[in-house]
Design a protein around this nucleic acid. Structure first.
Lengths: 340, 340
DNA sequence: TGCTGTATTGGAAGCGCTTCCAATTCCTAC
DNA sequence: GTAGGAATTGGAAGCGCTTCCAATACAGCA
């Protein structure tokens, strides 16, 4: 209601020029204390707050960051990972007084339609973009438009872009090593969608652990999943005939699917089959049995992503920043360690 | 890189005035076809796209909608409900060429800090705000600032605001009636957080069903939850000694907690205890056993929310719009109907 | 008391677009 | 060939803010 207020009016009411009013509004020096006081008075009385769009136009940035989540929407809102990521990013945006714009690119047409809006340096100061499938050209295209951006997850191509990731290889390596330490020798894995670097890296960690401990790699013990529940279920069924005694599953959601297959087969966890997952989001601790899983610091991941982006905004995008966060193996019941 | 382009330059290159250039940019009439062609040519060659901020300042709206999720963050990103809601809203925003701004108000300070940004009609054209706890004054405060808004969920107070909700009373009523029809007479309920209207309404539906079917209401059979997994677990434990044979649980997430308590107690579902949940989000179908649950059309809910908001933007906020979406009981295994 | 240097102030230009309105051009009909 | 009207064009004034820069006020010093 009192919204037609402009800085001009404030200035008039306080009996100063618009310039001076602007100065006190932005806490700039060179205003006599008494004058400053008077203007502040008026601002408070009227409940004035400056028009962000006008300000943005003048200063040439908006204080808005964009988060873009490409394709694969099935996973995007079925896996608790993304909500938590969003939360971390939103939190950090709040802390730094930025506004967060959300862009879900579900279909190719949407991507095409949204691209100009995302790529234009007018609306968004910068972008956090979740890495997509291998072969996705979105990042490359954005890069050549010169938009400040940081990628969440390791991009497939070797391009000079800033990104943040968790150490997926090491996380998987830890998990599998732990199973080996518990005495397992026939260890399978259910992979994530192999058109993502995260899934690839986790499989690499699995292989590396087996190899370094002198265990053979057996193709039949590697079942492809795609990060959702049903794929975990199917992969588990596929694995069962080959009699593994332990499985490293590339995401907790797939563990739930695996658990379902196991219970249908009348097998118990961890007695008949040890399981280690990946993610450690809220559902993991309350599962039956509670999941041993590789913890990723998703909230911090999100926070850091925006901090990197802000750094780029301030200091330019060269050289590209690279941040790899550590994971931690959380030992609960599903691996059998607690009863071993 | 080619981003310093302004409409002025386009006009110059095409040999017309900025006014005319603007006209072709916005597909307005009164431009000679050949001229229009020429300008379009230049626009394409240069890859020009107009600065959205400048345009916003001129036309006095931004084409940005805000989604604000107040407090109770524990539930917000632990319950799959919200991601799906966000998805529906984002989808609809895309369809209508709006950008979505996300505001998570986790702490009171954040709320205070963000309020001006949210309430100022400069940045956001309108707001979709998730209803908060009963007693929350956020909506009222926003309302008096005259921000166009639509509430997701029924507000507690009787205020003249537009909102969209699902028919929680009817949904719960359906669920409980179904259990009664299956022959149950000792039917308990695990409620949601009773400082929300959704939880209250669902409890009302439960009571109504019992009453109308001549069954007694028994306080001991009503256990308070708060929509998260652990509360379902605890509530179930609390209910067990009173020997219900069926439970209506106010959200699927709490069903998972209940399931955990039941399995620890050595009870089987649905043989020893019939369960009906609420939500029917992806995890429900893959649960063990698959959940009978009240389906809410969350995606459509989100879409409609933005459509209502756009309607308000276009035609004013009086009278307040009220939209109540229907729910549907999805019968799977957890209620025992399939084996009865 | 007068002079130089610093702190305060406000005028005006500019951010990149839209849009009102007056000026010009083009048709058509007479 | 000309008057009248419609279609086309561009000048200029905003939208609400920031900021450069020149102008003014004030301080300290000799």
């Amino acid at each position: 209601m009192t919204d037609k207020l402009t800085l001009d009016e404030i200035a008039q009411r306080a009996g100063v020029s618009r310039t001076t009013a602007s100065r006190v509004l932005n806490n700039r020096p060179n205003v006599r204390p008494e004058v400053r006081e008077r203007v502040q008075q008026v601002i408070e009385e009227t409940g004035y707050s400056p028009n962000p769009v006008a300000r943005s136009l003048a200063i040439q940035h908006t204080h808005i960051l964009g988060l873009v989540l490409p394709r694969r929407s099935d996973t995007v809102f079925t896996d608790p990972y993304f909500p938590v990521l969003i939360q971390g990013i939103a939190q950090a945006c709040n802390d730094h007084e930025y506004t967060l714009g959300l862009f879900l690119l579900q279909t190719p047409e949407e991507e095409r339609k949204l691209l100009p809006r995302i790529a234009h340096k007018g609306l968004l100061d910068g972008l956090i973009i979740q890495v997509g499938e291998i072969g996705d050209q979105l990042i490359a295209r954005l890069l050549e438009k010169n938009v400040p951006l940081v990628v969440a997850g390791r991009p497939a191509q070797e391009i000079p872009v800033s990104y943040i990731d968790v150490d997926n290889v090491a996380g998987a390596y830890q998990a599998v090593s732990h199973l080996i330490r518990l005495g397992h020798t026939r260890i399978g894995t259910i992979t994530g969608a192999l058109n993502t670097t995260a899934a690839l890296d986790r499989r690499t960690g699995y292989e590396q652990a087996l190899r370094e401990h002198g265990l053979p790699l057996e193709d039949a013990l590697v079942a492809p999943g795609n990060f959702n529940e049903s794929s975990g279920y199917q992969a588990m069924q596929q694995l069962l005939p080959h009699r593994p005694t332990a499985i490293f599953v590339a995401s907790d959601v797939m563990v739930f699917g695996a658990l379902r297959a196991l219970s249908e087969a009348g097998l118990r966890v961890p007695e008949d089959m040890a399981l280690v997952g990946y993610d450690d989001l809220p559902p993991a601790a309350n599962a039956a049995p509670p999941l041993t899983t590789v913890h990723q610091p998703v909230l911090r991941f999100g926070e850091q992503a925006v901090e990197i982006l802000l750094d780029i905004l301030e200091n330019g995008s060269v050289p590209p920043r690279r941040v790899i966060l550590d994971t931690e193996l959380i030992i609960r019941d599903s691996c059998g360690a607690s009863q071993a």
